Simulated assay, not measured.
Amino acid sequence: MPEKDNIIQISILLAARNEEHNIERCLRSLDALNFPKESIEIIIGDDDSDDHTADIILDYIQRKQQFKYVKITEQLAGLKGKANVLAQLAHHATGKYFFFVDADIAVPTTWLTHMLLHFGQNTGVVVGLTRMKKSHLLADFLSMEWLYALSVTRLASFFQVPITGMGNNMAVTREAYFAIGGYEKIGFSIVEDYTLFMSIVRKGYRFAQAYNPQILNISEPVNTFAELLKQRKRWMQGVMQSFWVTKWSLIISSQLVPFLLILAYWYPAISLLMIGLHYALTTVTALIAITILKQKDLWKAAILFWFYVTGMGGIMLINYILPGQMEWKGRKY
């Protein structure tokens, strides 16, 4: 519960650019949070949107004192995009904790309370969970992919092995954020959530991976394979900058099945056995994850997940290697 000597305990920082189709859904979920409204502030940074994002925000937040709208027109030295927005919002924030969420996210009412439970002594950052809104098969596979990866991250967190942050569901202490100098000190990155997470960990703070349905955010999914490739090209930048265990685990796992298929030419029985075991391990892990997190609507995606992830691993590597600029929110990087 909020501390009596601190009126604002939590600052929710939300960067938005051209989100007219998503922003009201996000704002409604934040307005419904089961937390004293006088103890939170929700600061929305409009990153120079050229659609109706600003109009929707301003109309919704009328007479809602916990919401604050900030028009971002200035670009801080060395920063651009979302990192530039969040850097400026942090200086408007007064809370003890900074919570990060994206404009295409709907949060559960229990989000703040259950994330706060994971802040122990010297914990600087807590990473939450996210899945896609149920809408089509690709969305289910993406949900399964996120929950599978976050389950691995959860396991690694028991040994304080840092893997990644997640900008659509992450919280940091004010102390840790400013101890590293904020985004101004970190500098620009297309994967600003990962760089913030790693900077806090490298400063000596502990981290935690929250793992329960009460902190599970629901994202709008990408709807086409072309959109997915754009998203993954950006994500791979973070993977290739990440802890060596993460980077090489992805590279090796993405090439394992192709290697076994080639090996089958000489050793068919052994190769097929190993592929079968790989399928079983992946599928059992996926089923355990959706059971623990009470997302049983994903059982079909869990059974077929091995086929999806086996193909996507190689596609992501090839997509990353291919030349070309990254495009995100109408901007090229």
Rank of each mutant, 00 (worst) to 15 (best):
K4F: 04
D5T: 00
Q9M: 04
L13C: 01
E19A: 02
N22F: 01
R25Y: 03
L27Y: 07
L33M: 04
F35P: 06
P36D: 01
P36G: 02
K37N: 02
E38T: 11
E41R: 14
D48Y: 03
D51C: 09
H52G: 04
T53R: 04
A54S: 06
A54G: 02
L58V: 02
K64G: 09
A77G: 13
L79R: 02
L89T: 02
H92P: 05
G95A: 00
Y97E: 12
F99E: 07
A103I: 01
A103V: 01
T113H: 08
N122S: 06
L137T: 10
L137W: 11
L138R: 05
A139S: 09
D140C: 07
V152I: 11
R154K: 13
R154C: 08
Q160G: 12
I163P: 03
V172W: 07
V172K: 07
A176W: 12
Y177A: 05
F178D: 09
G181I: 07
E184H: 06
E184C: 12
I186R: 09
S189R: 10
I190W: 05
V191D: 04
A210L: 09
V222H: 00
F225D: 12
A226Y: 13
A226H: 15
L228M: 11
V245L: 15
S249D: 10
S253K: 10
V257I: 15
L260E: 06
Y265H: 11
L273W: 13
A280Y: 15
L281N: 09
T283Q: 08
T283N: 09
T283G: 08
A286F: 03
T291I: 02
I292W: 13
I292P: 06
Q295R: 01
D297F: 11
L298D: 10
K300F: 09
Y308V: 05
Y308C: 05
M316Y: 03
Y320Q: 04
I321E: 05
L322P: 04
E327S: 15
R331I: 08
